[in-house]
Computed example of a mutant assay.
Amino acid sequence: MLNALEVFTTVSVGVMVGVEFSVAFVINRILDALPGDSGQLGRAHGGRMLGAVMPVWYISSLILVAVWAVTGWHDHGTGLVVTAGALLMVSVIMSILLLVPINNRSKTWTPENRPADWKQQANRWERYHYVRVAVIVAAFALLVIAL
Protein backbone atom coordinates (compact mmCIF):
# COMPACT_ATOMS: atom_id res chain seq x y z
CA MET A 1 0.00 0.00 0.00
CA LEU A 2 2.79 2.43 0.90
CA ASN A 3 4.56 1.68 -2.39
CA ALA A 4 1.42 2.56 -4.34
CA LEU A 5 1.08 5.83 -2.39
CA GLU A 6 4.73 6.68 -3.03
CA VAL A 7 4.42 6.06 -6.77
CA PHE A 8 1.06 7.85 -7.09
CA THR A 9 2.37 10.86 -5.16
CA THR A 10 5.58 11.05 -7.18
CA VAL A 11 3.72 10.81 -10.48
CA SER A 12 1.15 13.42 -9.39
CA VAL A 13 3.85 15.89 -8.34
CA GLY A 14 5.88 15.07 -11.46
CA VAL A 15 3.00 15.82 -13.81
CA MET A 16 2.32 19.06 -11.91
CA VAL A 17 5.97 20.00 -12.35
CA GLY A 18 5.69 19.23 -16.07
CA VAL A 19 2.66 21.49 -16.47
CA GLU A 20 4.28 24.36 -14.59
CA PHE A 21 7.59 23.89 -16.44
CA SER A 22 5.69 23.95 -19.73
CA VAL A 23 3.90 27.17 -18.76
CA ALA A 24 7.20 28.83 -17.85
CA PHE A 25 9.35 27.73 -20.76
CA VAL A 26 6.97 26.83 -23.60
CA ILE A 27 3.45 28.23 -23.36
CA ASN A 28 4.43 31.75 -22.30
CA ARG A 29 7.04 31.93 -25.09
CA ILE A 30 4.37 30.88 -27.60
CA LEU A 31 1.93 33.47 -26.26
CA ASP A 32 4.61 36.18 -26.37
CA ALA A 33 5.18 35.45 -30.07
CA LEU A 34 1.53 35.82 -31.09
CA PRO A 35 0.53 38.96 -32.99
CA GLY A 36 -1.44 41.84 -31.55
CA ASP A 37 -3.43 41.23 -28.42
CA SER A 38 -3.63 37.47 -28.87
CA GLY A 39 -0.87 36.74 -26.34
CA GLN A 40 -2.50 38.82 -23.62
CA LEU A 41 -5.88 37.23 -24.31
CA GLY A 42 -4.26 33.77 -24.19
CA ARG A 43 -2.63 34.57 -20.86
CA ALA A 44 -5.98 35.71 -19.46
CA HIS A 45 -7.64 32.50 -20.60
CA GLY A 46 -4.78 30.39 -19.24
CA GLY A 47 -5.02 32.27 -15.94
CA ARG A 48 -8.71 31.41 -15.69
CA MET A 49 -8.28 27.77 -16.70
CA LEU A 50 -5.14 26.89 -14.75
CA GLY A 51 -6.13 29.21 -11.91
CA ALA A 52 -9.08 26.91 -11.27
CA VAL A 53 -7.14 23.63 -11.49
CA MET A 54 -3.72 24.28 -10.03
CA PRO A 55 -4.75 25.21 -6.44
CA VAL A 56 -6.44 21.83 -6.08
CA TRP A 57 -3.40 20.10 -7.57
CA TYR A 58 -0.93 21.90 -5.32
CA ILE A 59 -2.93 21.22 -2.15
CA SER A 60 -3.66 17.59 -3.02
CA SER A 61 0.03 17.01 -3.80
CA LEU A 62 0.97 18.50 -0.46
CA ILE A 63 -1.58 16.27 1.30
CA LEU A 64 -0.28 13.19 -0.52
CA VAL A 65 3.28 14.01 0.52
CA ALA A 66 2.17 14.54 4.13
CA VAL A 67 0.37 11.17 4.13
CA TRP A 68 3.48 9.53 2.67
CA ALA A 69 5.66 11.11 5.36
CA VAL A 70 3.36 10.00 8.19
CA THR A 71 2.72 6.53 6.79
CA GLY A 72 6.37 5.84 6.09
CA TRP A 73 7.74 7.68 9.11
CA HIS A 74 10.35 5.03 9.92
CA ASP A 75 11.51 4.46 6.34
CA HIS A 76 14.96 5.53 5.19
CA GLY A 77 13.74 8.34 2.88
CA THR A 78 11.34 10.07 5.24
CA GLY A 79 13.59 13.07 5.75
CA LEU A 80 13.62 13.64 2.00
CA VAL A 81 9.83 13.34 1.86
CA VAL A 82 9.42 15.82 4.72
CA THR A 83 11.80 18.24 2.99
CA ALA A 84 9.85 17.82 -0.26
CA GLY A 85 6.67 18.59 1.67
CA ALA A 86 8.25 21.70 3.12
CA LEU A 87 9.22 22.84 -0.38
CA LEU A 88 5.69 22.21 -1.63
CA MET A 89 4.42 24.28 1.31
CA VAL A 90 6.77 27.08 0.25
CA SER A 91 5.35 26.84 -3.27
CA VAL A 92 1.78 27.11 -1.94
CA ILE A 93 2.68 30.12 0.21
CA MET A 94 4.48 31.75 -2.72
CA SER A 95 1.44 31.13 -4.88
CA ILE A 96 -0.99 32.66 -2.40
CA LEU A 97 1.14 35.68 -1.54
CA LEU A 98 2.85 36.48 -4.85
CA LEU A 99 1.35 34.78 -7.89
CA VAL A 100 -2.40 34.51 -7.21
CA PRO A 101 -2.94 38.25 -6.69
CA ILE A 102 -1.38 38.99 -10.09
CA ASN A 103 -3.23 36.10 -11.72
CA ASN A 104 -6.56 37.23 -10.26
CA ARG A 105 -6.10 40.62 -11.87
CA SER A 106 -4.70 39.45 -15.19
CA LYS A 107 -7.33 36.79 -15.87
CA THR A 108 -9.94 39.54 -16.23
CA TRP A 109 -7.94 41.74 -18.58
CA THR A 110 -8.97 42.43 -22.13
CA PRO A 111 -7.31 44.80 -24.59
CA GLU A 112 -9.95 47.35 -23.58
CA ASN A 113 -9.57 47.20 -19.79
CA ARG A 114 -5.98 46.13 -19.10
CA PRO A 115 -3.83 48.53 -17.08
CA ALA A 116 -0.97 50.45 -18.64
CA ASP A 117 1.56 48.35 -16.71
CA TRP A 118 0.09 44.97 -17.68
CA LYS A 119 3.33 43.79 -19.27
CA GLN A 120 5.32 44.65 -16.16
CA GLN A 121 2.82 42.74 -14.02
CA ALA A 122 3.01 39.76 -16.39
CA ASN A 123 6.82 39.86 -16.21
CA ARG A 124 6.69 39.99 -12.40
CA TRP A 125 4.38 36.95 -12.40
CA GLU A 126 6.84 35.12 -14.67
CA ARG A 127 9.80 35.86 -12.39
CA TYR A 128 7.92 34.55 -9.37
CA HIS A 129 6.77 31.57 -11.41
CA TYR A 130 10.38 30.67 -12.36
CA VAL A 131 11.26 30.55 -8.66
CA ARG A 132 8.17 28.46 -7.91
CA VAL A 133 9.09 26.04 -10.70
CA ALA A 134 12.58 25.66 -9.23
CA VAL A 135 11.07 24.94 -5.80
CA ILE A 136 8.67 22.27 -7.08
CA VAL A 137 11.35 20.69 -9.28
CA ALA A 138 13.50 20.35 -6.15
CA ALA A 139 10.56 18.82 -4.26
CA PHE A 140 9.95 16.37 -7.09
CA ALA A 141 13.63 15.39 -7.21
CA LEU A 142 13.60 14.68 -3.47
CA LEU A 143 10.52 12.47 -3.85
CA VAL A 144 12.20 10.53 -6.65
CA ILE A 145 15.31 10.03 -4.52
CA ALA A 146 13.17 8.96 -1.56
CA LEU A 147 11.60 6.18 -3.64
Rank of each mutant, 00 (worst) to 15 (best):
F140Q: 07
N113S: 11
R105P: 00
A69V: 07
F21L: 15
L80H: 10
N28Q: 08
M1Q: 11
L50T: 07
A141M: 11
N123G: 02
V67C: 12
L2R: 07
L147F: 12
G79M: 09
V67W: 05
T83N: 01
T9F: 08
I136E: 12
V15C: 06
E20R: 00
I102D: 01
R105D: 10
F8H: 00
Y58C: 02
V65E: 14
G72S: 12
V144W: 12
G85E: 14
M49C: 03
S95C: 03
L88P: 14
I136V: 15
E6V: 04
W57Y: 10
E6M: 09
R124I: 09
I59H: 08
R29E: 07
G39Q: 03
A84S: 14
A4E: 14
V19T: 08
R43M: 12
F25K: 04
M16T: 13
L31T: 06
A116M: 02
V133Q: 05
V92W: 09
T78H: 08
T83Q: 06
W57D: 01
S106W: 03
I63D: 01
Q40I: 13
M54Q: 12
L34E: 10
A122K: 03
N104D: 14
G14H: 13
G46E: 03
H45L: 13
P55D: 09
Y58N: 03
P35C: 07
T9P: 02
V19D: 03
L87S: 11
S22N: 13
Y130A: 05
H129P: 00
L142V: 13
L87Q: 06
P35I: 12
G85I: 11
F21K: 02
V100H: 02
L41P: 00
G85R: 05
Y58T: 04
V13K: 12
A66S: 15
L80K: 13
M94F: 03
L143C: 08
A24L: 14
G42V: 03
V53L: 15
Q120V: 12
L62T: 10
H74R: 10
Y58K: 10
W118V: 13
V13G: 11
A122W: 01
G46T: 13
N123S: 14
K107H: 09
T78D: 00
W118C: 09
T9M: 11
L5C: 04
H76Q: 15
M1H: 11
A138D: 07
V135W: 04
A33M: 07
S12C: 07
A138W: 06
V82W: 09
A66M: 14
L2K: 04
V144S: 03
I102M: 10
I93T: 10
L34A: 15
F21D: 08
